[in-house]
């Protein structure tokens, strides 16, 4: 069974995201400890990319800060290995296909397995192109997290039937970033998913308030929050740790 399943065993999951290396890998490690202490169920760790086409300005800027700080995949793997010594929380990477391809699919997945990464989210590797990576990730016990979007229509069940780990339901059109309102008919998307698979589904893109997280976890198994946390990091920098703890605790309390 997928190690990720654990995140969804005790009610709705709260899934925070942050960009590795923003402002430094030491701080990222500290922030992840704060998230875990505050009740996070799974951590999404962004590997920064020069051209993150699925991200809004907040995460784009975090990627730039992290790259300027000299963040590399190897540095991130070392950080994950250190984290793994003290926690068994599921952790996944979110990144774009080129850094993974350039590292080498096989070498990258082997390093994930060694250091204790449980899954990969690659927004620019859609269903049609995942076969290149599939056999390799399976061999290394990694789940490739499938994304389903408001425009997926007839593709929902096709994607869901092959999903593993969890399904990332994209709440809205466009890129990541805080939204005051989520208009997509998520209920009907979730019902198609439910009719197709038992793999848990979490909703992301736009969620930032406890109320939104609560609503989302009434229809899905988890809520993913990225930009709101990255904003805290942008604002408080090295001192963001306690603020992240407070925010994650507030969000987790709201969905219990």
């Amino acid at each position: 069974m997928s190690k990720i399943a654990k995140a969804f065993e005790n009610g709705p999951a709260f899934i925070p995201f942050l960009t590795a290396g923003d402002p430094s890998l030491e701080k990222t490690e500290e922030f992840i400890h704060e998230m875990i202490r505050a009740g996070a169920d799974l951590i999404e760790i962004g590997i920064p990319f020069s051209d993150p086409i699925a991200e809004g300005p907040v995460i784009q800027e975090a990627d730039i800060r992290a790259l300027r700080a000299g963040t590399t995949p190897d540095g991130i793997f070392e950080m994950v290995a250190r984290l793994r010594k003290t926690t068994d929380i599921p952790m996944v990477f979110l990144t774009y296909v080129n850094p993974v391809f350039h590292y080498g699919f096989e070498r990258f997945c082997a390093r994930c397995e060694e250091t204790g990464i449980d899954g990969l989210i690659i927004p620019d590797l859609p269903f049609e192109e995942k076969s290149e990576l599939d056999a390799i990730t399976k061999r290394h016990g990694l789940d490739v997290i499938s994304l389903i979007a408001p425009t997926s229509e007839d593709r929902i069940s096709r994607i869901a039937v092959e999903a593993s780990g969890y399904i990332y339901v994209v709440s809205s059109m466009g890129v990541t970033g805080v939204r005051s309102e989520i208009k997509t008919d998520l209920r009907s998307i979730l019902s198609v998913i439910r009719n197709t698979t038992d793999v848990p589904a979490a909703i992301g893109f736009g969620i930032n308030t406890p109320e939104q997280a609560y609503e989302m976890t009434r229809i899905a198994d988890g809520a993913i929050v990225g930009s709101a946390i990255v904003k805290i990091i942008a604002q408080y920098g090295d001192a963001a740790g306690p603020k992240i703890y407070e925010y994650v605790k507030m969000m987790k309390d709201a969905i219990r």
């Binding site: 699925a54 859609p126 389903i148 979007a149 425009t151």
Partner: peptide, 19 residues
């Protein structure tokens, strides 16, 4: 198909695939 030799393909976010 979608390729010229090993090049090409359709590496875009799911939101754009149906489009």
């Amino acid at each position: 198909g979608t390729r010229f030799g090993l090049h090409g393909g359709q590496y875009v976010p799911e939101t754009l695939m149906n489009e």
